[in-house]
Design a protein around this nucleic acid. Structure first.
Ligand SMILES: [Mn+2]
Ligand SMILES: [Mn+2]
Ligand SMILES: [Mn+2]
Ligand SMILES: [Mn+2]
Lengths: 219, 219
DNA sequence: AAATAAATTTAGACAAATCTAAAAAATAAT
DNA sequence: ATTATTTTTTAGATTTGTCTAAATTTATTT
């Protein structure tokens, strides 16, 4: 299936949004992509004609099997490039997303499989997100949001679901990165904020908001 | 200067064509880009408005200083990616052009400079063409077309100006690659064909056509 | 110097991707 | 059950890049 850059961006965004909600709605996708709701409706029609989408007017939408497969291919390219930019070119993980957003649209399968081999078939991208393999398979992570992690149990930071520059700035400030050792010392019921210890740094407090977006796994 | 993918392709093509002729004409660019002459005229107007082109209606055109600088940036990206694809991903040099044709449009300067450093600031791409540096400077090659090379003088194949799949197929057949040792044993005036010796292979004959497109330099 | 041929540009159309403003449908509030 | 609000879709434009066919300009022949 030959897709335009725009179609690919829409598909990938729908994939991301449908992870969190059953049906994706027009406004949230418009908001996510910074376009007007009218543009979304236009594109939904195209994607439905291409049989990539389940879409009933006014009642939300969702990628079908074929759509999901396309999304996984794009995500694979995106995350492999991010991995390349960080591990080979030495770019910072906060800065690679926008470049990968462009590189992901170069769609030669030969290129991507050779890149994959060259990188050593990595399973996780620099933000802790899983990289689909050539068949679209993603590894199952036994990670949890930090806010659901038990008190005083060691954890490793595995990913961050909110990858805005603002989030990255804050994580840098705290010295939190993928792979950091982390432990919750105290949880405040009032606002969900957490007193945590990161590696050998002094204790600090992070907001409930942040705690929802930081994912960790055992030891 | 922010340029569309299409504008970039036109600029790069004009740059290539103006190497060979004083003024570039509409039809040759249309032919080169596989578009209609009318499309060329449309784009020329845009590039003139953007002050990248010297263009007098009906009398041909040429990039100006600004246009040449843009072209060199695009060519730098294209050739660095080709170099990457061959030296890092192990792709064959006949196959990298089309992929680089897409990658060249990802225009983050930070990306390209880091890629350049990562590759060791190469000066020549896999087809023997020079790679512009960050300032747009290209090394001067003292190479000549094989058809102009003296008889029985050793030479190294440095580049191939015609990079069609057909040409590549033929070069592979003869065992000619960038870096090959080559010597002309006899030149046939009638059709410009050459009897040559490549490395330690048996003698062979190549056409005048081929001899125009293979470039070599001293030992 | 006309007439003919070739090259180039213009005119007008179309597809893709976007927008704003208005209409329609679904949802929530009285 | 109406009314009001929110969400979504449609209608109609716009921009970019392309096309074909016709008109114009330049170059080449007689
Ligand atoms: Mn993208
Ligand atoms: Mn990522
Ligand atoms: Mn290109
Ligand atoms: Mn090349």
């Amino acid at each position: 299936m030959k897709l335009s850059e725009s179609e690919e961006n829409y598909i990938k965004s729908i994939y991301n949004l449908q992870e969190k909600t059953e049906k994706v709605n027009t406004n949230s996708l418009a908001n996510f992509l910074n376009t007007s709701p009218a543009s979304i409706t236009d594109m939904l029609k195209k994607l439905k004609i291409k049989k990539l989408l389940e879409y009933k007017k006014y009642y939300g939408f969702r990628l079908n099997e074929a759509g999901n497969n396309e999304a996984l291919k794009i995500i694979r390219r995106h995350r492999l490039w991010e991995y390349f930019l960080v591990t080979k070119l030495g770019m910072e993980w906060e800065k690679v997303h926008d470049i990968a957003e462009e590189l992901e649209h170069v769609s030669s399968p030969d290129l991507i499989n050779k890149l994959d081999i060259y990188l050593g078939k990595p399973k996780i991208d620099p933000h802790g997100d899983p990289i689909p393999d050539e068949k679209g398979k993603i590894i199952e992570l036994k990670q949890k949001a930090l806010k659901n992690w038990p008190l005083k149990r060691n954890a490793i930071v595995s990913s961050v679901s909110n990858q805005t520059p603002e989030m990255m700035e804050m994580l840098n400030h705290y010295g939190i990165a993928i792979g950091s050792q982390i432990k919750i010392l105290k949880a405040f019921e009032f606002d969900g904020s957490l007193q945590i210890k990161i590696a050998r740094n002094p204790d600090c407090i992070i907001s409930g908001q942040a705690a929802k977006n930081i994912f960790v796994y055992d030891n």
